[in-house]
Amino acid sequence: MERRYAAALGVVFLVAVLAPFLASPNPDGLEKTAEKFESARGIDFHLLPSPFPDYTVPGMPGAASEVAAMLIGTALVFVLGLGVARALTKAG
């Protein structure tokens, strides 16, 4: 069982590390749609400053910065998932 999860996590982190190199830089469907309408242009409002804007770690160079941001994010979601799931299971 543990080996299954180790293998799955290996694939997950491989995707995380490769994503910055493989991802298309084109705007996504929502961004592309927003470009077409005057009413959606130029809106630039953020409630809070983000620690890793655009999936980069500020101060790190280029590709390393993007890979680091993906590793941090993936690990963060994994730990959060474990924490939430464990807390709920205990409560039950």
Binding site: A19, A23, P27, D28, G29, G73, T74, V77
Partner: peptide, 24 residues
Amino acid sequence: LATLAAGIFAIQALNIPIPWGTSG
């Protein structure tokens, strides 16, 4: 649950090009 959440976070960064200069 945790592995799936991490995997979905990772795969969401992998934009695939589609026609019209767009991706998803």
